[in-house]
């Protein structure tokens, strides 16, 4: 039985007081504990950003990689050792900006990875520039006249790309969020959990209050997460009606994972394969023999 101490590191989180990411940290901790994941078999991978500091807050294995490249790094870990639980954490700039290409492909690939994006509609670590999810008109350091590009909608994008688990949580509701993360980890395949996680320092628009005023839970509204078209409708709801901000599980589907189909993994995890077989190499060379 693993307890809190088995998961929580003694590193003090770098977040500003009141940052939404504390709530995500706490929900992640609870999710790991409730699932009793073996910390030595768990790897938390991240990119760069305030949110990407998450691996340090845990006593699991972790890789704190490059800005925007957490998914490829995590995919490599998972492909090499399918016995590991691989969780990816990062920000909206990291995942929906510089790393967006990887998200689409990670979704297509459907590896067993859980991706938690702390979406604060801002670049926190670089002190408050617009992010790809900042709303139209948002005045930031880098957009003093207001944002004039329409925001990325990660949910409809993920659905369109064929995602098999699409959820949105709110760091102001850690119990609800814990469930979404937990089910994401249990989900067979790639799970995207977008989290509305306010940056109290640089985003004065998408605050806790702003969110609380609009938020409602899909499960309480009778949403059926097996219905793709309904999921799409809910995913774009905020775009059409800025007063409505649904959270919860939008969509879940049972689709074969990459690991299940990959030829090279038919003999088990790569880390467990025999490292060297001279006989096998001889056979490989024989394909090129002139005899």
């Amino acid at each position: 039985m693993y307890t809190m101490q088995d998961y929580k590191s003694n590193v003090k989180p770098i977040f500003c007081p009141g940052c939404g990411d504390y709530g995500v940290d706490a929900s992640m901790l609870k999710a790991l504990m409730e699932l009793q994941l073996d910390p030595s078999n768990t790897v938390i991978v991240s990119g760069i950003g305030c949110s990407s500091s998450m691996p340090h807050d845990f006593k699991t294995y972790g890789i704190h990689g490059l800005h925007g490249r957490a998914l490829p790094l995590a995919e490599g870990v998972r492909l090499a050792n399918t016995e590991l639980h691989v969780i990816v954490a990062g920000g909206d700039g990291d995942g929906y900006g510089i790393g967006l290409n990887h998200l689409i492909h990670a979704i297509r690939r459907n590896l067993n990875i859980t991706y938690v994006v702390m979406n604060n509609e801002i670049y926190g670590l670089t002190t408050g520039q617009a992010s790809p999810t900042s709303g139209m008109g948002h005045i930031t350091k880098s957009t003093p006249f207001g944002v004039i590009e329409r925001p990325v909608n990660p949910l409809s994008l993920a659905l369109a790309a064929g995602a098999t688990y699409v959820a949105r949580g709110f760091s102001g509701d850690p119990v609800h969020l814990t469930n979404l993360i937990k089910n994401g980890i249990l989900h067979k395949g790639f799970a995207l959990v977008d989290v509305q996680s306010p940056c109290v320092t640089f985003n004065k628009i998408n605050t806790y209050e702003w969110t609380r005023k609009r938020v409602y839970k899909l499960e309480e509204a009778g949403h059926d997460p097996k219905d793709f078209m309904k999921a799409m409708e809910k995913a774009v709801e905020f775009q059409l009606n800025p007063e409505k901000f649904p959270i919860g599980l939008f969509y879940e589907a049972d689709v074969p994972t990459y690991e299940e189909q990959e030829e090279a993994l038919k003999q088990g995890p790569l880390t467990k394969h025999q490292l060297q077989s001279i006989e096998d190499v001889k056979a490989l060379l024989e394909e090129h023999s002139v005899l």
Binding site: G65, A80, N101
Partner: peptide, 19 residues
């Protein structure tokens, strides 16, 4: 992968995992 950025980052991930 989708590009060479992915290729090298995946490779680093796989090597980190021990292969």
């Amino acid at each position: 992968p989708e590009d060479e950025i992915t290729a090298i980052n995946m490779t680093i991930g796989a090597a980190s995992a021990g292969v």
